[in-house]
Amino acid sequence: TTIEWNGTKITVDNPQKAKELAKKIAKKLGLTVKVHGNTITIE
């Protein structure tokens, strides 16, 4: 699972952990999480 935001890509083996990490990042930055299959985008 890949997390993408602002040109940065982070690959996380565990999809559940990836989703939790994305939510934490999005919350800190005041952004939203969008899931597209194996890609999680923070916008």
Rank of each mutant, 00 (worst) to 15 (best):
P15G: 05
A22P: 00
A18V: 04
Q16Y: 09
T1P: 08
K17A: 11
I42V: 06
L31I: 09
I25V: 03
A26T: 06
W5K: 10
K17D: 07
K28G: 08
I40R: 00
L29E: 07
L21Y: 06
T39Y: 07
L21T: 02
V12P: 01
K24P: 00
K27G: 10
T1L: 11
G7T: 08
T11L: 12
V12N: 01
L21N: 01
G7R: 02
N14H: 06
V12L: 13
T2D: 12
I10P: 00
K24Y: 11
D13A: 14
T39E: 06
K17R: 11
A22L: 05
A26W: 03
L29V: 06
V35Q: 08
I10N: 00
E4V: 06
V33C: 06
K23V: 12
T1I: 15
Q16E: 11
E20W: 10
N6Q: 13
V35R: 04
K17E: 09
E20D: 09
L21W: 09
N6D: 13
K24E: 09
K34E: 08
K9F: 13
V33Q: 01
V33H: 01
T39P: 01
K23Y: 09
I40W: 01
K9P: 04
I40P: 00
G30D: 04
N6H: 15
T2K: 11
I3K: 07
E43W: 08
K19G: 05
N14G: 06
L29R: 07
K17F: 11
G7D: 10
E20S: 11
I40L: 06
N38E: 04
I40E: 00
N6M: 08
D13V: 11
T2S: 06
Q16G: 09
N38T: 08
T2W: 04
T39N: 07
V33L: 06
I10H: 02
K28E: 13
G7C: 15
K9I: 15
K28I: 14
G7W: 06
T41K: 10
K27E: 14
P15M: 13
D13I: 11
L29D: 04
V35Y: 09
P15T: 05
W5T: 09
I10L: 05
N38Q: 07
W5S: 09
G30A: 03
V12C: 15
K28Q: 11
T1H: 10
T1C: 15
D13S: 14
K24T: 08
L21Q: 02
I3P: 13
E43Y: 11
K19S: 07
I42P: 00
N14R: 03
E4Q: 07
K9T: 15
